[in-house]
């Protein structure tokens, strides 16, 4: 009886405090939307300003009118840039550097990550951490030693890498390989161990296991690493600024700055257009690969 009485007393009191799940969820969602909108507006301001400015003439840009409105929209900046062989050269250089870097990064990172994640050998865990630590060294510390290295390399071999676009193909993997390897170690580690054991029992070599099982199954992780490697090599500024000077060897970020800023004359309209056009390839790649990136390819491998 005492028990029952206690429960009866507590019942209504507790009921008052309880809120329905949907009520809690509604408020959680409201706050989420509020902050997400805030962040979206905050981060969309610069690109929006870039778009607006790219549609203005130099005259309108320097005129004292509302900077957030285009009074006389024009595509002249786009026409001029896309018609300039210099800009197309930068674009081509950037594309070649990025594509080569992505390929080199993948060729090194995928087998490295597989070895570090799966082929347990002496020191593999330390090595994996070491790979990541190399990524933490800032490039602003490295560019002078690297410059010296290329100079010494030239002295010994007679091969001049500096001031050619392909020097960046050699340099960028120092940034992309550690991080891509690290991402993929994590991804490979999430693949059930039985999957490679099954492949081995089926008669696959390590290489066959990697190429025919791991690469397809870890595709989302590999794509994440690819996007990363591409973005880093596309947007990197310090290294190309330090290592390339001849106009025909420049990549987009440096090319735009060095050719469109002449002394203290800033050609803002074209600078903004150039920034917008150079942002396009990564955006397009993101858009295409995002679905892959998100889709869970491992579903159905094992229980659950």
């Amino acid at each position: 009886m005492t028990m029952a009485a206690t429960i009866d007393k507590a019942g209504p009191r507790r009921k008052k405090k309880l809120r329905s799940m949907s009520h809690d969820r509604k408020w959680a969602l409201r706050w989420s939307y509020f902050f997400l909108t805030l962040f979206a507006i905050f981060f969309l301001f610069p690109p929006l300003y870039t778009v607006i400015t790219s549609l203005k003439t130099s005259g309108e840009i320097s005129a004292a009118v509302n900077p957030w409105w285009v009074y006389h929209p024009t595509l002249s900046n786009y026409k001029e840039l896309l018609g300039s062989s210099q800009f197309l050269r930068f674009f081509l250089n950037s594309a070649m550097v990025s594509i080569c870097v992505v390929i080199i990064t993948m060729l090194i990172s995928i087998p490295a990550a597989f070895a570090l994640a799966r082929m347990k050998f002496w020191g593999s865990a330390t090595l994996a951490t070491g790979v990541f630590l190399t990524y933490l060294i800032p490039d602003s510390l490295l560019f002078i030693p690297l410059f010296k290295m290329f100079a010494v390399f030239h002295d010994y071999t007679g091969i001049q890498l500096l001031n050619h676009w392909y020097v960046l193909v050699v340099v960028y993997p120092t940034l992309t390989v550690p991080f891509a390897t690290w991402i993929m170690i994590g991804y490979f580690a999430s693949i059930p161990k039985e999957l490679d054991e099954a492949a081995i029992m089926d008669g696959a070599t390590w290489m066959q296991t990697l190429l025919r099982i791991f690469v397809p199954v870890a595709l989302p992780g590999i794509i994440a690493a690819t996007i990363f490697a591409f973005t880093v090599s596309w947007a990197q500024f310090l290294y190309p600024l330090a290592f390339t000077t001849t106009t025909s060897e420049l990549v987009l970020p440096v090319g735009i700055i060095t050719t469109l800023i002449k002394g203290d004359v800033f050609n803002w309209g074209q600078i903004m257009t150039g920034a917008l056009l150079s942002a396009a390839p990564p955006l397009i790649i993101y858009a295409f690969l995002m679905d892959y990136y998100i889709s869970g390819l491992t579903a159905g491998a094992t229980k659950g």
């Binding site: 029992m201 491992t298 229980k303």
Partner: peptide, 27 residues
Amino acid sequence: KDRDIAMVFQNYALYPHMTVAENMSFG
């Protein structure tokens, strides 16, 4: 791979990107 034995795992360990027929014929 040279012992000529086959193993069935607790969590099945099927290759998720292959069809049933491809899974079976992989070896």
